[in-house]
Design a binder for these strands. Structure first.
Length: 223
DNA sequence: ACCCAGGTGGCCC
DNA sequence: GGGCCACATGGG
């Protein structure tokens, strides 16, 4: 019986397999935030279409989101799904930031814990979205947990049930170095592995990830 | 004709 | 705290 792989070892395996992923497409903090909201339970392919529509309309910033007519906004982001909810969430976010701060940068200067709680108070911003915004837009090291991360770690470590968000976040954070680039890329690696779950080869002898990845999301739910 | 996707909030017990 | 459900589109 081999010992369980550590998180640094797992990262090393993934990094070796997929390479550095230079993740979260988006050139500006505004675009990253918009993408983070649009990608909630949606495929990135669909989000790309929505973002492309917004870009063509010159509406890829919080200030333009604030100004634009809601029906127009809904039409642009329609491909990303849940477009009524998401247009509302975008509006709420843009209105909040622009009426409380001179700029995003000012808001991002707050201590991370305060920033996180503040983001979580906004309707439509949950833990993953808040942490994604902090990690990729504010560029501060908060580890993002998503469905893939839960599913994969659950299988690697033979947990009976999937861990709680904050719990898993603590465990991973305490197992790796507190480093922005590592946090960003490790999260990206989890997603990359998750996307390839049914066709990936075992990563290494300590981490026969293929075995854990033969089951799709569906079988998680039925358990 | 299903199943799934880089979640979140609301409601119930 | 856990268990459902609605939310909507596009691709496999």
């Amino acid at each position: 019986m081999h010992s369980k792989i550590t998180f640094p070892e797992l990262y090393s395996c993934l990094r070796n397999r997929f390479g550095f992923l230079d993740w979260w497409p988006g050139d500006t903090p505004d675009e990253i935030i918009i993408g983070a909201i649009l990608t909630q339970n949606a495929s990135w392919k669909n989000v790309e279409k929505a973002i492309s529509n917004l870009k063509d309309a010159g509406c890829l910033s919080l200030s333009s989101i604030k100004k634009i007519n809601t029906k127009m906004l809904e039409a642009y982001i329609r491909p990303s799904g849940f477009f009524r909810q998401k247009s509302r969430r975008l509006k709420i976010f843009a209105n909040y930031v622009l009426s409380n701060y001179d700029s995003l940068d000012v808001m991002f200067m707050k201590p991370v814990s305060a920033l996180r709680s503040e983001l979580l108070c906004l309707h439509g911003i949950g833990r993953e979205t808040a942490d994604s915004i902090i990690l990729y837009a504010a560029e501060k090291p908060v580890f993002v947990i998503d469905a893939y991360t839960k599913r994969i770690t659950c299988r690697i470590y033979d947990n009976k049930k999937e861990p709680e968000y904050d719990e898993l976040q603590r465990i991973i954070s305490s197992g790796i170095k507190r480093n922005l680039g590592l946090y960003q890329d490790f999260h990206a690696q989890f997603v990359e592995l998750g996307k390839n779950y049914c066709r990936t080869e075992p990563l290494c002898s300590k981490c026969p990830v293929r075995k854990y990845c033969l089951f799709g999301a569906r079988s998680d739910k039925s358990k």
